[in-house]
């Protein structure tokens, strides 16, 4: 790809998703776009970019944006945030949300390993949840990722990254060389295509939002806007769980770190009072 072509693609991706692509990384851009070009019947990546320039075809543009924004993920990624969810967040919610449904959102979940990890925890902990009603949502920008997530089918490499073998045995069936999650776990998650750049107010409130390793792909202004939208979607005593290397500090004061919990944030009451 020429540097002009790469610039066209970078600008499209940024405008549609807020994701900033490193212009120095031509190789991964080409690797990810090659299947799109093939699928759409173009002879080369240059032809694909040319078609976008001329026709501005929305479906084609989204195919390109999606291919370049699918995030890396794995079951129980980084371990600790999931232990925190199980051992500290869930017991509090079970105690304080007796009257209403507990809502948990795994945002920018790529191919679904994160919401399914949460679903397996909820399944394991069911007896301790005192009959609490829980809704679990998974969302991503990419239709392709969501389709894969919804299928609940993973390859041998994917089920060996982060998933303890006993959970594989308990929750998966082997179909040829692939592994499929049980209908019980799959049915616990509801899927939706959500662009975090869009207005999120219609989604309502969530007690817990996992949004891990997406913010770090955004530019600073987008990061602030998305964080403030997520903060608004939380009740005063809600939780936001970010990637281990992501922070709200220096980005927005709508949230503040949960003491001693790396990557965990709570709404900042002072900011709420000022905004009210």
């Amino acid at each position: 790809m020429t540097s002009d072509d790469i610039e066209v693609v970078r600008q499209l991706v940024h405008a549609r998703s807020g994701v900033v692509i490193d212009p120095g990384k031509a190789y991964p851009i080409e690797t990810r776009l090659a299947p799109v070009a093939r699928r759409e019947g173009f002879e080369s990546l240059a032809d694909l970019v040319q078609a976008i320039r001329i026709h501005r075809n929305d479906r084609l543009i989204w195919a390109v944006v999606e291919a370049l924004t699918v995030g890396e993920t794995s079951f129980f990624r980084d371990g600790a945030p999931f232990e925190h969810f199980r051992d500290e967040i869930l017991p509090v919610l079970a105690g304080t949300r007796r009257e209403r449904t507990i809502r948990v959102w795994s945002a920018a979940c790529s191919t679904g390993q994160e919401p399914y990890s949460l679903a397996m925890i909820l399944d394991d902990e069911r007896s301790k949840l005192q009959g609490a009603r829980i809704e679990l949502f998974g969302s991503d920008l990419s239709e392709w990722a969501l389709e894969k997530a919804q299928s609940g089918v993973y390859n041998q490499f994917e089920v060996q990254r982060g998933l303890p073998i006993r959970l594989l045995v308990r929750h998966f069936d082997k179909i040829d060389e692939m592994w499929r999650l049980s209908p019980r776990i799959r049915q616990m998650v509801r899927w939706r295509r959500i662009n975090l750049l869009a207005d999120l107010r219609a989604l309502g409130q969530f007690d817990v939002i996992f949004c891990r390793n997406a913010l770090s792909t955004f530019d600073a202004a987008t990061r602030q806007r998305v964080l403030e939208q997520l903060a608004r979607a939380l009740p005063d005593d809600g939780w936001l769980v970010l990637g281990l290397d992501e922070t709200v500090v220096g980005v927005t004061d709508a949230l503040r770190p949960a003491p001693g919990r790396r990557g965990v944030y709570r709404p900042n009451p002072a900011h709420r009072a000022a905004a009210a």
Binding site: S74, Q156, F157, Q160, R161, G162, P164, I165, R166, L168, V169, D173, K174
Partner: peptide
């Protein structure tokens, strides 16, 4: 890499189970 073998191994006292082929990421995760 079938469930029967994995289950048999766990019942015999295995703690974890890696299906070949493996790489550094998988070994580290396990």
């Amino acid at each position: 890499n079938d469930l029967e073998h994995i289950t048999e191994a766990l019942e015999a006292g295995a703690d974890e189970y890696i299906m070949k082929p493996f790489d550094g990421d998988i070994v580290c995760a396990k």
